[in-house]
Design a protein around this nucleic acid. Sequence first.
DNA 1: AAATACATCAACCGCCCCCAT
DNA 2: AATGGGGGCGGTTGATGTATT
Length: 281
Amino acid sequence: MEGSLGVRKGAWTEEEDTLLKQYIDKYGEGKWHQVPPRAGLNRCRKSCRLRWLNYLKPNIKRGEFKADEVDLMIRLHKLLVLMGSWTIDRAVSVGSFVPIYYLLDSDKADRDVDALKWSMIAGRLPGRTANDVKNFWNTHLRKNAISRIKDGGEKAHDTLKVNVIKPRPRTFAKNLTWFSGKPTIMAASFQPKDNVIRDLPPTPLSSEDSIKWWENLFDDKETGGEIGPCDVGGLDEEPIATLRWAEAAPAEIVGSPLDEFGPSFWAELSSNLDVWDFLDP
DNA sequence: AAATACATCAACCGCCCCCAT
DNA sequence: AATGGGGGCGGTTGATGTATT
């Protein structure tokens, strides 16, 4: 064990910070196992890595979160809670996915659903680290949400009230630029309730359109039915997936989406698209 | 003024996944 | 095929600072 003999723990001193910074300047980021000896630090590799990633690395934003950052954080968290229950299929899957029984029954499933949550949110908040986002959420947002639920006389639930994102059909073409280099995306079959497969004219993905797509994704004021001007098309090929947001979802639900959507709901959704990948920054 | 409770957040811990061997 | 090590993650802690009684 590398931490067994007299390795320093706890808060970092300025001297240690300087040594670590000097090392990274010289040798670059990575290969953490050789950082302590080469930098002259009496710390374990993980401690060094954490200190760099969460504190010393350039461009890390300090200070309190701005309102727009908090807003985006809440929206992303909301989306991820919902998305977590979408990484499901009983059918063929090429990439990573969580079978439904797995989701419903096992503790491990909870971990998988939560996987990468904070880093994904942090990835969309420039300069913020996953640790910062997690801390902020746990200290400010989660507590408030729980107490609100309790004050309202509703059942105490150890999770947030989650507004479900409104129905919004989406069709993705194959070979989107967005998909490139994301091997867990695979062919998907997703049956909308009305069986209407809506295709979009394939057009190149511009960053502006990408932003528009995200705005639509987060818009929970308007109930979708129409496909918006959503030019996320790629090459002239068959759609890789047709997604439809939860049909007639309740305005809000308490706790996990699984509380509200029973097995029949999932039975209707046959998707092996790993939605997590859409959030990859 | 002192004691106590509460809030914050940097850092640690254990686990999991991936990859090289 | 099996396994061991490294990186990366979420959950949690505990030292420190701040508010309340």
